[in-house]
Protein backbone atom coordinates (compact mmCIF):
# COMPACT_ATOMS: atom_id res chain seq x y z
CA UNK A 1 0.00 0.00 0.00
CA UNK A 2 2.68 2.44 1.07
CA UNK A 3 4.75 1.33 -1.92
CA UNK A 4 2.16 2.81 -4.20
CA UNK A 5 2.77 6.28 -2.86
CA UNK A 6 6.50 5.82 -2.53
CA UNK A 7 6.63 5.05 -6.24
CA UNK A 8 4.60 8.14 -7.04
CA UNK A 9 7.13 10.00 -4.95
CA UNK A 10 10.06 8.59 -6.90
CA UNK A 11 8.53 9.06 -10.31
CA UNK A 12 7.75 12.70 -9.46
CA UNK A 13 11.39 13.33 -8.66
CA UNK A 14 12.49 11.75 -11.87
CA UNK A 15 10.06 13.88 -13.80
CA UNK A 16 11.30 17.01 -12.04
CA UNK A 17 14.90 16.24 -12.94
CA UNK A 18 14.36 15.37 -16.62
CA UNK A 19 14.96 18.86 -17.87
CA UNK A 20 18.16 20.15 -16.35
CA UNK A 21 17.96 23.67 -17.75
CA UNK A 22 14.38 24.05 -16.65
CA UNK A 23 15.29 22.87 -13.20
CA UNK A 24 18.27 25.19 -12.89
CA UNK A 25 16.30 28.19 -14.12
CA UNK A 26 13.60 27.46 -11.62
CA UNK A 27 16.18 27.46 -8.80
CA UNK A 28 17.72 30.66 -10.14
CA UNK A 29 14.30 32.26 -10.06
CA UNK A 30 13.80 31.26 -6.43
CA UNK A 31 17.18 32.64 -5.44
CA UNK A 32 16.59 35.93 -7.25
CA UNK A 33 13.21 36.30 -5.63
CA UNK A 34 14.80 35.73 -2.25
CA UNK A 35 17.70 38.13 -2.88
CA UNK A 36 15.31 40.83 -4.06
CA UNK A 37 13.31 40.83 -0.86
CA UNK A 38 16.48 40.44 1.16
CA UNK A 39 18.16 43.50 -0.33
CA UNK A 40 15.07 45.68 -0.11
CA UNK A 41 15.01 45.16 3.64
CA UNK A 42 18.76 45.38 3.92
CA UNK A 43 18.68 48.81 2.22
CA UNK A 44 15.87 50.03 4.42
CA UNK A 45 17.97 49.30 7.47
CA UNK A 46 20.96 51.26 6.22
CA UNK A 47 19.52 54.47 7.63
CA UNK A 48 17.56 53.13 10.58
CA UNK A 49 18.07 50.59 13.32
CA UNK A 50 14.45 49.72 13.97
CA UNK A 51 11.34 49.82 11.82
CA UNK A 52 7.84 48.60 12.74
CA UNK A 53 9.37 47.05 15.83
CA UNK A 54 11.79 44.93 13.81
CA UNK A 55 15.56 45.11 14.08
CA UNK A 56 17.72 44.45 11.05
CA UNK A 57 18.65 41.06 12.44
CA UNK A 58 15.07 39.98 13.06
CA UNK A 59 13.78 41.12 9.68
CA UNK A 60 16.61 39.48 7.73
CA UNK A 61 16.13 36.29 9.73
CA UNK A 62 12.42 36.54 8.98
CA UNK A 63 13.12 36.81 5.25
CA UNK A 64 15.48 33.83 5.18
CA UNK A 65 13.28 31.63 7.35
CA UNK A 66 10.22 32.54 5.31
CA UNK A 67 12.13 31.52 2.17
CA UNK A 68 12.56 28.06 3.62
CA UNK A 69 8.95 27.87 4.73
CA UNK A 70 7.79 29.05 1.32
CA UNK A 71 9.70 26.23 -0.33
CA UNK A 72 7.99 23.67 1.86
CA UNK A 73 4.51 25.08 2.22
CA UNK A 74 3.86 26.92 -1.02
CA UNK A 75 4.67 24.19 -3.48
CA UNK A 76 1.72 22.42 -4.89
CA UNK A 77 0.41 20.60 -7.89
CA UNK A 78 -2.97 22.19 -7.47
CA UNK A 79 -2.93 23.58 -11.00
CA UNK A 80 -2.27 20.09 -12.38
CA UNK A 81 -5.49 18.93 -10.80
CA UNK A 82 -7.63 21.41 -12.68
CA UNK A 83 -5.74 20.77 -15.91
CA UNK A 84 -6.30 17.05 -15.61
CA UNK A 85 -9.95 17.54 -14.88
CA UNK A 86 -10.31 19.81 -17.89
CA UNK A 87 -8.44 17.64 -20.37
CA UNK A 88 -10.08 14.48 -19.09
CA UNK A 89 -6.96 12.66 -17.94
CA UNK A 90 -8.57 12.46 -14.51
CA UNK A 91 -10.06 9.33 -16.05
CA UNK A 92 -6.75 7.62 -15.28
CA UNK A 93 -7.58 7.85 -11.58
CA UNK A 94 -11.15 6.82 -11.89
CA UNK A 95 -10.24 3.63 -13.66
CA UNK A 96 -7.54 2.57 -11.22
CA UNK A 97 -7.50 1.50 -7.58
CA UNK A 98 -5.83 4.74 -6.58
CA UNK A 99 -6.85 7.55 -4.23
CA UNK A 100 -7.24 10.90 -5.90
CA UNK A 101 -6.19 13.01 -2.91
CA UNK A 102 -3.43 10.66 -1.77
CA UNK A 103 -1.94 10.63 -5.25
CA UNK A 104 -1.57 14.37 -5.34
CA UNK A 105 -0.46 14.59 -1.76
CA UNK A 106 2.37 12.16 -2.53
CA UNK A 107 3.34 14.25 -5.54
CA UNK A 108 3.32 17.39 -3.42
CA UNK A 109 5.43 15.83 -0.70
CA UNK A 110 7.96 14.76 -3.31
CA UNK A 111 8.19 18.32 -4.61
CA UNK A 112 8.48 19.69 -1.12
CA UNK A 113 11.34 17.41 -0.18
CA UNK A 114 13.21 18.32 -3.35
CA UNK A 115 12.55 22.00 -2.67
CA UNK A 116 13.70 21.93 0.90
CA UNK A 117 16.99 20.26 0.01
CA UNK A 118 17.76 22.99 -2.46
CA UNK A 119 16.49 25.95 -0.48
CA UNK A 120 18.53 24.97 2.57
CA UNK A 121 21.57 24.82 0.33
CA UNK A 122 20.77 28.20 -1.17
CA UNK A 123 20.01 29.93 2.11
CA UNK A 124 23.23 28.53 3.62
CA UNK A 125 25.10 29.92 0.66
CA UNK A 126 23.58 33.36 1.21
CA UNK A 127 24.45 33.23 4.89
CA UNK A 128 28.03 32.26 4.15
CA UNK A 129 28.49 34.87 1.42
CA UNK A 130 26.58 37.84 2.81
CA UNK A 131 27.07 37.13 6.51
CA UNK A 132 23.78 38.69 7.61
CA UNK A 133 23.31 39.13 11.38
CA UNK A 134 20.83 36.28 11.65
CA UNK A 135 19.12 35.07 14.76
CA UNK A 136 19.51 31.38 15.59
CA UNK A 137 16.60 29.93 17.51
CA UNK A 138 17.82 27.36 20.04
CA UNK A 139 14.81 26.77 22.27
CA UNK A 140 13.65 23.20 21.46
CA UNK A 141 10.02 23.90 22.40
CA UNK A 142 9.91 26.82 20.00
CA UNK A 143 11.45 24.71 17.27
CA UNK A 144 8.85 21.99 17.82
CA UNK A 145 6.05 24.54 17.61
CA UNK A 146 7.67 25.98 14.49
CA UNK A 147 7.72 22.55 12.83
CA UNK A 148 4.16 21.84 13.87
CA UNK A 149 2.98 25.17 12.47
CA UNK A 150 4.78 24.47 9.20
CA UNK A 151 3.16 21.03 8.89
CA UNK A 152 -0.29 22.47 9.51
CA UNK A 153 0.57 25.17 6.99
CA UNK A 154 1.37 22.49 4.41
CA UNK A 155 -2.02 20.87 4.99
CA UNK A 156 -3.80 24.22 4.83
CA UNK A 157 -2.19 25.16 1.55
CA UNK A 158 -2.77 21.74 0.07
CA UNK A 159 -6.46 21.92 0.91
CA UNK A 160 -6.90 25.49 -0.36
CA UNK A 161 -5.19 24.68 -3.65
CA UNK A 162 -7.17 21.51 -4.08
CA UNK A 163 -10.52 23.08 -3.24
CA UNK A 164 -9.97 25.81 -5.80
CA UNK A 165 -8.71 23.41 -8.45
CA UNK A 166 -11.67 21.14 -7.94
CA UNK A 167 -13.97 23.86 -9.18
CA UNK A 168 -12.78 22.64 -12.59
CA UNK A 169 -15.36 19.89 -12.21
CA UNK A 170 -18.09 22.46 -12.61
CA UNK A 171 -16.53 25.33 -14.54
CA UNK A 172 -14.40 24.86 -17.61
CA UNK A 173 -11.57 27.04 -16.42
CA UNK A 174 -10.48 27.54 -12.84
CA UNK A 175 -7.62 29.91 -13.63
CA UNK A 176 -9.53 32.92 -12.32
CA UNK A 177 -9.92 31.65 -8.77
CA UNK A 178 -6.40 30.19 -8.79
CA UNK A 179 -4.92 33.51 -9.82
CA UNK A 180 -6.84 35.26 -7.08
CA UNK A 181 -5.49 32.76 -4.60
CA UNK A 182 -1.90 33.46 -5.62
CA UNK A 183 -2.43 37.17 -5.07
CA UNK A 184 -3.85 36.59 -1.61
CA UNK A 185 -0.94 34.31 -0.84
CA UNK A 186 1.70 36.79 -1.88
CA UNK A 187 0.03 39.73 -0.19
CA UNK A 188 -1.24 38.20 3.01
CA UNK A 189 0.87 35.09 3.44
CA UNK A 190 3.81 37.03 4.75
CA UNK A 191 6.34 36.08 2.09
CA UNK A 192 7.21 39.65 1.13
CA UNK A 193 6.85 41.34 4.51
CA UNK A 194 5.73 40.35 7.99
CA UNK A 195 2.05 41.26 8.06
CA UNK A 196 2.16 42.76 11.55
CA UNK A 197 3.56 45.93 10.00
CA UNK A 198 0.01 46.49 8.71
CA UNK A 199 -2.50 48.48 10.81
CA UNK A 200 -3.67 46.53 13.85
CA UNK A 201 -7.27 46.16 12.66
CA UNK A 202 -6.24 44.78 9.29
CA UNK A 203 -3.74 42.47 10.95
CA UNK A 204 -6.29 41.09 13.39
CA UNK A 205 -8.71 40.48 10.58
CA UNK A 206 -6.10 38.72 8.45
CA UNK A 207 -5.22 36.44 11.33
CA UNK A 208 -8.76 35.07 11.12
CA UNK A 209 -8.14 33.97 7.51
CA UNK A 210 -5.94 31.00 6.67
CA UNK A 211 -3.39 32.96 4.63
CA UNK A 212 -0.99 34.31 7.29
CA UNK A 213 -0.61 30.82 8.69
CA UNK A 214 1.22 29.67 5.61
CA UNK A 215 4.40 31.74 6.03
CA UNK A 216 4.02 34.53 8.53
CA UNK A 217 2.89 32.42 11.48
CA UNK A 218 5.65 29.77 11.48
CA UNK A 219 8.32 32.40 10.74
CA UNK A 220 7.23 34.50 13.70
CA UNK A 221 7.20 31.45 15.95
CA UNK A 222 10.78 30.82 14.92
CA UNK A 223 11.70 34.37 15.92
CA UNK A 224 10.03 33.78 19.28
CA UNK A 225 7.79 36.83 18.89
CA UNK A 226 4.56 35.33 20.18
CA UNK A 227 3.34 35.14 23.74
CA UNK A 228 1.93 31.86 25.07
CA UNK A 229 -1.60 33.26 24.76
CA UNK A 230 -1.08 34.29 21.17
CA UNK A 231 0.38 30.90 20.31
CA UNK A 232 -2.67 29.20 21.79
CA UNK A 233 -5.13 31.49 20.03
CA UNK A 234 -3.48 31.28 16.62
CA UNK A 235 -2.99 27.54 16.77
CA UNK A 236 -6.69 27.17 17.55
CA UNK A 237 -7.61 29.24 14.52
CA UNK A 238 -5.14 27.31 12.35
CA UNK A 239 -6.44 23.93 13.47
CA UNK A 240 -9.98 25.11 12.86
CA UNK A 241 -9.01 25.98 9.29
CA UNK A 242 -7.17 22.72 8.66
CA UNK A 243 -10.17 20.67 9.77
CA UNK A 244 -12.69 22.82 7.91
CA UNK A 245 -10.70 22.89 4.70
CA UNK A 246 -9.98 19.17 4.91
CA UNK A 247 -13.64 18.28 5.11
CA UNK A 248 -14.51 20.81 2.45
CA UNK A 249 -11.90 19.23 0.18
CA UNK A 250 -13.15 15.69 0.80
CA UNK A 251 -16.69 16.77 0.17
CA UNK A 252 -15.73 18.55 -3.04
CA UNK A 253 -13.81 15.55 -4.33
CA UNK A 254 -16.83 13.31 -3.76
CA UNK A 255 -19.28 15.77 -5.24
CA UNK A 256 -16.95 16.56 -8.11
CA UNK A 257 -16.42 12.95 -9.08
CA UNK A 258 -20.13 12.28 -8.81
CA UNK A 259 -20.84 15.26 -11.00
CA UNK A 260 -18.14 14.21 -13.44
CA UNK A 261 -19.44 10.67 -13.74
CA UNK A 262 -22.98 11.94 -14.09
CA UNK A 263 -22.21 14.50 -16.74
CA UNK A 264 -19.23 12.96 -18.49
CA UNK A 265 -16.99 14.59 -21.01
Amino acid sequence: MINKYLTIFKISWQEGLVYRLNFILWRVRTILQLLLVYFIWWTVFQSQTQIFGYTQSSILTYILVSAIIRAVVLSSRATDVSNQINDGSVVNFLIKPLGFISYYFSRDLADKLLNILFVILEVSLIIVLLKPPIFLQTNPNTLILFTLAAILGILTYFCIGFVISLTAFWVENSWGPLFLMFIFLEGFGGGLFPIDILPRGVFNFLMLTPFPYLIYFPAKIYLGHFSANEIFLYFSILIFWVITLWFLMRWMVNMGLRHYTAVGH
Binding site: N3, K4, L6, T7, I8, I11, Q14, E15, V18, Y19, G88, S89, V91, N92, K96, P97, L98
Partner: peptide, 21 residues
Protein backbone atom coordinates in the same frame (compact mmCIF):
# COMPACT_ATOMS: atom_id res chain seq x y z
CA UNK B 1 -6.14 9.60 -24.19
CA UNK B 2 -2.92 8.51 -22.62
CA UNK B 3 -1.74 7.46 -19.23
CA UNK B 4 2.00 7.23 -19.94
CA UNK B 5 4.17 9.88 -18.33
CA UNK B 6 5.13 12.09 -21.19
CA UNK B 7 8.58 13.11 -19.98
CA UNK B 8 9.71 9.71 -18.74
CA UNK B 9 10.27 6.35 -20.41
CA UNK B 10 7.23 4.06 -20.58
CA UNK B 11 9.04 1.74 -18.21
CA UNK B 12 8.47 4.19 -15.33
CA UNK B 13 4.73 4.22 -15.89
CA UNK B 14 4.80 0.42 -15.88
CA UNK B 15 6.51 0.44 -12.49
CA UNK B 16 3.94 2.88 -11.15
CA UNK B 17 1.12 0.69 -12.41
CA UNK B 18 2.78 -2.33 -10.89
CA UNK B 19 2.48 -0.68 -7.48
CA UNK B 20 -0.99 0.69 -8.09
CA UNK B 21 -2.33 -2.71 -9.05
Amino acid sequence: KNQLWWDLPAWETFILNKEIY
